[in-house]
Design a protein around this nucleic acid. Structure first.
Lengths: 216, 216
DNA sequence: AATTGTGAATTCCTTCACAGCC
DNA sequence: GGCTGTGAAGGAATTCACAATT
């Protein structure tokens, strides 16, 4: 285990490797080589070995990696061994879609609270046990329900002030869907999913057909 | 205008600059310096100047950039002067949320078709003029409605085969929400928005609190 | 005086290539 | 023989620093 700082790019790839290991495990595969993993997502095998080597020596020379072992290691490294308790702020189309998205419920992320400012939405029971509550209740509900992560699906103009509330309530990880650059706050990690940027990047590609399409 | 290949990172930043210029324009600001722009999203001012310099000399030394001019230039470069016609494949929670998301409708992206395989969803009128249609109709509807972009909101297992259909129908730009690595197809650009990766990266941060939070 | 545009320097990330091990 | 782990090389992106321009 090195003490070097580990880049976000490496962490993102660990998620990708883990997903693949889950499939291999499902399929009953015992071991896998970095070469085989690399071919799945056209990456370089040395990159995979380097990524993993930041965290330990998980492989067996001449053999590869034991699927079950590496899978458990990655789940541990990524903090997925424990379930995260997630709140969604903003019960519009996107917020509700995320609340109902099955991909999260089953796994390591559980939606445990849902907030909005619109009185028309407050009280709506999205599914059994998950009711839209007033944003005013956020400061008390977040510690009460032990929320450790928030998804922000509020309009861009509201995002900065809601982030402030959320950080004050002790949350240290936020996934922001508002198309805006949020100011950096010590101790709180914010990741932004910006659909406009993605769409505009596709638009650029369409407008400039000389450029060959490439991996993002 | 250089002939160098321009990185995806540069293109993404152009979108960010454009959004800021739209706000400045709205506020009636005449000119802006790279330094001021940089401070908005803690970037380096040289980076902004370099990004812009790939496409031309838009600035005035000693003055900065004329907001309206640069705004129009960026809209042109990003292919936003013309409206894109977008189809959504997969009318589940996420697909419907995107179909109703106002952020797109007003701007350069117009949702003009919506597909699903589930008979229970086919025929649903999401809003006036936008009805969920059978996936079987995709090959004919896409050219008919002049769709040039697709958002894929189908389950991961279906994504690869739907992508094949979409590419066959002549679409060259796809925004994929399925948590899977899609194979690269010549002439078609695919961008993936992978929420699991984002969430797991936040989870890593929570599990490793020694690391300082940083810009994504 | 202020700010752009850009070569040079730096930092960061990826790939190569091979010693070491099973 | 096959595959990992890693130092060294190579490549890409960012930042510095300054000449050029208004």
């Amino acid at each position: 285990m090195k003490t070097e700082k580990i880049s976000e790019l490496t962490i993102n790839r660990l998620s990708i490797y883990l997903r693949c290991l889950n499939e291999l495990s499902e399929a009953g595969v015992q071991t896998v080589s970095s070469k085989l993993l690399a071919e799945q997502f056209n990456l370089n095998s040395a990159q995979i070995r380097k990524d993993l080597a930041y965290f330990g020596e998980f492989g067996v020379r001449g053999v590869g990696y034991v699927v079950e072992d590496l899978r458990e290691q990655l789940r541990g490294i990524l903090g997925l061994a424990t379930t995260h308790r997630v709140a969604i702020v903003g019960a519009g189309n996107l917020g509700l879609a995320l609340a109902n998205y099955l991909g999260f419920q089953q796994d390591s992320f559980q939606i445990v609270a849902l907030f909005d400012v619109d009185p028309a939405r407050i009280g709506l029971e999205v599914r059994p046990g998950l009711v839209v509550r007033s944003l005013d209740l956020l400061p008390s509900v977040i510690p009460e329900r032990q929320v450790d992560m928030v998804m922000l699906t509020v309009p861009a103009v509201a995002a900065e002030s809601v982030l402030e509330m959320v950080v004050q309530a002790g949350v240290r990880a936020v996934l922001n869907f508002a198309p805006i650059h949020l100011s950096v706050r010590p101790g709180c990690k914010v990741k932004t999913v910006d659909l406009s940027i993605s769409l505009e990047s596709l638009s650029y590609f369409l407008a400039n057909p000389t450029v060959e399409p490439q991996e993002e």
